[in-house]
Design a protein around this nucleic acid. Structure first.
Lengths: 179, 179
DNA sequence: GCCTGCATGTAAGGCGTTACATGATTCT
DNA sequence: AGAATCATGTAACGCCTTACATGCAGGC
């Protein structure tokens, strides 16, 4: 799944402008290209060139011009194809793990401080994700199945943070008791 | 934590060549720059230029030349500084989540197939990580504390996969019962 | 008067991967 | 004889982020 297929899938839900896509992406935790307009605008140009989306320029009074994109038949075929091929493994880049892996040089207090600040960060993330889940600002909600899947997406992320916090307690206790 | 600090931390453990660093990185799941020699070799050149590491070229008989790098006093200071500043949040890029988020276009069977192939992938990853944990090929083991931390690193990754599998069961059941 | 939001886009650069290139030795 | 491992490095490219650039409208 690259950014182009993701844009196609959103346009399959409803017609959107680059600006709207950017906003949506930044509000959904499971989408990695958060708030990056360069990629979104250039992807849209490329998708249009390939005939996978069509553009409709809207001039409203008292409003800046807006370019609304729609998915085409070819775009739909391309999306379906990309959804079904080659699943990649999840990429977890947790720089905290690298840090404590290499922390032999630090003394006990410094490591405990590191753990505590990471824990605070995760608690904040958990809180923020829970709030987003409650608000559910963006939600296609086209079927029971889709609603269920989107609930499960939030649950996945929330579980991750909760598990991380449990693991941190064990880590902190272990280190406190050593030496 | 960037690749330079990570290299410094390994050299703080023991003197290593670029080739050895590359091998170590590829065997440790928590290090993201797996098996990328370009970055390692160029980082070493840059670290040497900045005086953070020193180089020792070894010509053994019947063996290719080997450039062994050691950490300097300045490198040690830089490492300690970098270990203590600015923790980043974990980055989780799970393209499977994007896929099912956008899967309204697919029929039930196709989604179930997607879930099953992702589950198989995670099971394989879990198995592979468990094997690596048992072997513990790379393990500085300089203190009880460090040994404990490295055990916890493996546990962190293994927990992630197990939680993902539990979540997948719930997801699959939910979708099976819908429609 | 200033900040935020709407709305478009471009430029520069960093980070990371894949592939290329070379050459010796050791294992099968 | 051929494959794998040891060991070094370079080139090209793609992905992604940050910053820059513009302009209007509405709220404080």
């Amino acid at each position: 799944m690259n950014i182009k297929s993701t844009i196609l899938a959103f346009l399959d839900w409803k017609d959107l402008s680059g600006y709207e896509l950017k906003k949506y992406f930044s509000k959904l935790d499971f989408i990695p290209w958060a708030g990056n307009n360069n990629q979104i605008y250039t992807a849209l140009i490329s998708l249009e060139k390939d005939g996978l989306v069509s553009k409709n320029v809207i001039h409203s009074e008292n409003k800046p011009l807006k370019k609304i994109f729609s998915i085409t038949k070819e775009g739909n075929d391309s999306l379906k194809e990309n959804l079904l091929i080659s699943i990649e493994n999840p990429e977890i880049i947790n720089e905290f793990l690298i840090r404590i892996a290499l922390s032999e040089i630090l003394d006990k207090e410094e490591i405990i401080n590191l753990i505590d600040s990471y824990q605070q960060k995760i608690e904040l993330e958990l809180k923020s994700t829970c709030e987003k889940e409650k608000r559910r600002e963006i939600n296609p909600n086209r079927s029971d199945r889709e609603a269920f899947i989107w609930d499960m997406l939030w649950e996945n992320r929330i579980n991750f943070y909760k598990n991380e916090l449990n693991w941190l307690v064990k880590l902190r206790n272990g280190i406190t008791n050593k030496l």
